[in-house]
Structures are given as structure tokens and as C-alpha cells.
């Protein structure tokens, strides 16, 4: 069953084409990765799906659970079971970790808050009362973001580069958390620029210059990405990429 469908989305910001005619289908219960180099438009796609205020698509539709959500607010989408974990999560002065995690829960459940922290290898007794502010490291903040998503139990979560700024040891833990999300029934749209992270997905879509250029098994798409996209030729030879993108289409 399809949980998310994007039909021919185009996004232009301040005269620059960020997304162009992008379509995507995500099946329920899967981990679907979006793989692409920096500036391919991956985060912008995440913001369009979530409905963030500066990312209103000029064309196209977004469907979630068969419902057209293109013009719904962020809150409305979240209430339907869609959420986003930002690449660089916001910090909140005065808000404790436990209260932050509880924000997305339908009914506050202290045990689930504790469990969610343990899932990201943060000792609850050390973190529950801490503030989600600048005293947390980038890595800690990202783990807390994942814990909050886990506790929210959404139908679909967009994880925007959950691996960025995370050391190698912690990466295994992040990957396990993503698998745990799938196990609890959450569909994961995983945005990354690392093919080894992308390989945990069931399906991978390769994104380049604001559109999806290839889709398939993670290993195959990852191999293509490694061979053709590193270093990213879009910056060095734009015309070559135009050909490549058109060819892939």
C-alpha cells in the first residue's frame, strides 16, 4: 500500500529552480531512502512534504494516505501521522528533554519517553531533566530528535540526514534506531548522501538537480551513485549532467 505519493512537484525559491517535476511513491512499512549529493534538493523535498512555510511548491501535488495534503499546514500533516526530523534540529531554551520528547505523544507516557532515550543510547537519568539547548552537542541533539520521533510513533517520518555529524560508532546505533522505527510500524523516508547508510533501505531513489533520476535496489542505486555522482559532476560539468539526467529519465 502506498503511504506517500508526490506528483510532479516543482519548487522555485528566489528565482532558483530547486525541485523540478519530481515524482515519488513510498510504500507503507518500508524504509525508502533518497540518496543524493549536497545541493541535490533533498532537504527541500523534505520541507515540501512536511509543508514548511517557505517551501510552497509552485506545481504538483503531495498525497499522504490517499489524501491531498498539498495545502495543509505542518500541524495538520503531523496530526495525520507525518513528521520530520531536521538535519540540524532546533534548540529550545527552557524545554527539558522529557518535555520535548512528550510534545509529539498523543498521551504522555513516561515509560515510552525513557525507552525512546535508551533506544538512542542516552541514559535517561542523565538526560531527562536536561534542556534541549546549546549545552547539548550536535550528536546528542540528533539522537534526542530520533528519540522524539520514536516516541511520537508517526505513520511516516522523514529523516533528513540523520547520519550527518554522527561518529562511526554512533552511526550503528542510528541505523538500529531507524530499523526500530520500521519495526514499530513507522514508514521511514531516509534522506542521506552516504550510500552505505542508504543500503539499509528497502528502496532507494537517487536524486540529482531537483529530481529523481533513478530508483531501485539500494545496492544498485548506491553503486551507480558512487561511480557516477562522486565527485558530483553537476558542479563541474553542468551540461554533462543535463545529458545524464535526461538519459536516466
Amino acid at each position: 500500500m502506498e503511504i506517500l505519493r508526490i506528483e510532479k512537484i516543482s519548487l522555485n525559491l528566489e528565482g532558483r529552480q530547486i525541485l523540478e517535476d519530481l515524482s515519488l511513491s513510498v510504500k507503507s512499512g518500508t524504509i525508502h531512502s533518497i540518496l543524493g549529493s549536497n545541493a541535490a534538493g533533498k532537504s527541500s523535498l523534505a520541507y515540501v512534504i512536511m509543508g514548511c512555510c517557505d517551501y510552497i511548491a509552485q506545481a504538483g501535488k503531495v498525497y499522504f494516505l490517499e489524501e491531498d495534503i498539498t495545502h495543509l499546514s505542518v500541524s495538520r500533516r503531523a496530526k495525520m501521522g507525518l513528521t520530520l526530523a531536521w538535519q540540524e534540529p532546533a534548540r529550545f531554551e527552557g524545554l527539558t528533554v522529557k518535555d520535548y520528547i512528550a510534545v509529539g505523544m498523543k498521551t504522555r507516557d513516561e515509560d515510552l519517553i525513557t525507552e525512546s532515550l535508551r533506544h538512542v543510547l542516552l541514559e535517561p537519568s542523565d538526560y531527562l531533566e536536561r534542556q534541549v539547548d546549546k549545552t547539548l552537542s550536535g550528536g546528542e541533539r540528533k539522537r534526542i530528535e530520533l528519540a522524539a520521533v520514536f516516541a511520537m510513533q508517526p505513520r511516516l517520518v522523514i529523516l533528513d540526514e540523520p547520519d550527518s555529524g554522527i561518529d562511526i560508532l554512533a552511526l550503528d546505533n542510528i541505523i538500529n534506531m531507524i530499523k526500530a522505527l520500521k519495526k514499530q510500524g513507522t514508514t521511514v523516508l531516509l534522506i542521506t548522501h552516504r550510500e552505505e547508510v542508504s543500503e539499509i533501505a528497502d528502496v532507494t531513489s537517487l536524486m540529482c538537480s531537483g529530481t529523481i533520476v533513478k530508483e531501485g535496489r539500494p545496492k544498485e542505486v548506491g553503486k551507480h551513485f558512487k561511480e557516477k555522482c562522486i565527485p558530483c559532476p553537476t558542479k563541474a560539468f553542468p551540461s554533462e549532467v543535463d545529458k545524464q539526467v535526461k538519459g536516466a529519465k
Binding site: S75, A78, K79, P89, A90
Partner: peptide, 19 residues
């Protein structure tokens, strides 16, 4: 109020005012 903070909380299901 920082837009990203507000949208982060809205993405957890809060209405804008509450966020």
C-alpha cells in the same frame, strides 16, 4: 520567534499558537 523552532513543534502536531 524562531521559525524553525515553531515548525519543529508543529511537525509534532502542535498548532502554531501553542508552538
Amino acid at each position: 520567534v524562531d521559525k524553525k523552532q515553531v515548525q519543529t513543534l508543529m511537525a509534532r502536531g502542535l498548532e502554531e499558537e501553542k508552538a
